[in-house]
Design a protein around this nucleic acid. Structure first.
Lengths: 259, 259
DNA sequence: CGCCCTCCTTGACGCGCGTCAATTCCGGAG
DNA sequence: CTCCGGAATTGACGCGCGTCAAGGAGGGCG
């Protein structure tokens, strides 16, 4: 997450409770809920007391894999934080085609922009695994902002990086499928790649059909894209684990992300 | 372009100091520069004194039609405000194809997210007409935030609506060209359409070639899209003014924005 | 009036990708 | 081991759109 360079962090506030992400939860609050809320980047600067207030106001909800968490176009009456599991933010086109905006993991905010911007959810959110979320009323965020102005900086920083992230989503859409795949594999190779004598081993962690829709395409086309990468000697495909021989080639095909 | 989803108004704020866009400029500051900075939504809540400080720190620059204001990938060393003229924010694909993110007009901020997020410009900005911009160092924004915390609200609101706007850009990309055209015409018809006995008259205000690149396509394809709308009896094309017969049909083709 | 330049339109063609259909592959249950 | 069902692959085909090339259609100007 990106942080302001020029702005000194606010003084820790005096208080009975020590601050930090490892603070143990008040005994009457579920520890996982506490951890998720305390770890949420939207209000990293918030005091424990404020987070505790959030936790008490929050509604805990279990979601099962594949179920819908928010639907595009619905009135945004609240926002959430992911406590456990993974979720996917996507747009559903009239023809059923999907575009993935973001993948969410624990402590990530759900639909927070909708809460801030008012109006309706601009995208769908779906649980990719069984999981738990907490749901908060929109006002809770406004109140937090009033009570603890330092939180505004976290919000600004988070929103700014989200905008930047969106531009890269759009850029991906301008690429053809093999390039999008290369880009995805490149990222995954850097993030979760395991070094082996042969090359970086990456576990997809999902079926190829799911990867296809995540990349905005269909299994058939993805399959051909994989075949091309294999023919070019860039990767080897073994079921749902990929061995990357040439990371640089992936970066090049994915359109210039050498970092 | 593209501003399909309604963007929520920012909350007006109370304050000690009188504010408003009609305050006259200090005598040693160019009136147009003052007006642009005072009107910039990023710091609507800022005091006149703070805006005056910004104005004194700003570098005024004239730009000519077609010249580049910021280049994707360059290090973001500052941001700007558009004083006069129009500009276009877009991504330039490896194959030269362009995707328009935003159209900017007077008082709109330029590259402000880049300043907030740090790092590099995520998109190109180009002047669509001759115009004037003021350029500020990134720190000016940080200092303003420290001096006047109320400004944070404006920033948050602006960023949130920008994220929402981006989702609608992405949604447009999922449509085919005739639908994108319909969507664009629908918007323009509502925003600047002149009622006549025949229907809503819309002046494109640019060459069809420019519209084509704004919609992410080429003149040939745009021409065919127009021909189709004409054949369907939805619009009539007279040079660069369009007469819309059936606004509802445009909305339907543009994928369900009936509001 | 004719000339030229820019913009627009129209047709022909190729490429990428989604769709349909037919196998093939693979893991788990019996 | 065999059988089964879902996942993955492969080929054939159509559609949208970008590209190339060849005309129109104004509009300004000598």
């Amino acid at each position: 997450m990106i942080d302001f360079v020029g702005i000194p962090a606010e003084e820790p506030r005096g208080g009975i409770i020590a601050r930090g992400n490892d603070v143990s939860a008040p005994s009457d609050i579920r520890p996982d809920v506490w951890a998720a809320l305390r770890g949420c980047p939207l209000w990293r600067a918030a005091s424990d007391a404020a987070v505790e207030r959030l936790a008490r106001a929050a509604a805990v909800r279990d979601v099962s894999r594949g179920s819908s968490i928010a639907r595009e176009g619905d009135v945004a009456d609240g926002f959430g934080v992911l406590v456990s599991g993974r979720a996917r933010v996507f747009h559903l086109g009239a023809d059923g085609r999907q575009i993935t905006f973001e993948d969410l993991a624990t402590t990530d905010p759900l639909a927070a922009v909708a809460a801030l911007a008012g109006g309706r959810y601009p995208a769908n959110i779906e649980a990719m695994t069984d999981g738990t979320i907490v749901w908060l009323r929109r006002d809770a965020l406004y109140e937090l902002l009033l009570e603890e102005p330092a939180v505004a900086r976290n919000l600004i920083s988070n929103l700014a990086s989200r905008v930047v992230n969106f531009t890269s989503v759009v850029q991906s859409l301008a690429l053809d499928v093999p390039s999008r795949l290369a880009r995805y594999l490149f990222q995954r190779a850097l993030a979760t790649g395991e070094t082996t004598p042969d090359g970086l081993r990456v576990d997809l962690g999902m079926t190829k059909g799911e990867l296809a829709t995540a990349l905005g395409t269909v299994p058939e086309t993805l399959s051909r894209a994989f075949a091309r990468l294999k023919d070019d000697g860039v990767v080897d495909v073994q079921g749902r684990t990929i061995v990357v021989f040439d990371v640089g080639a992936l970066a090049r095909m994915g359109s210039g992300y050498e970092d």
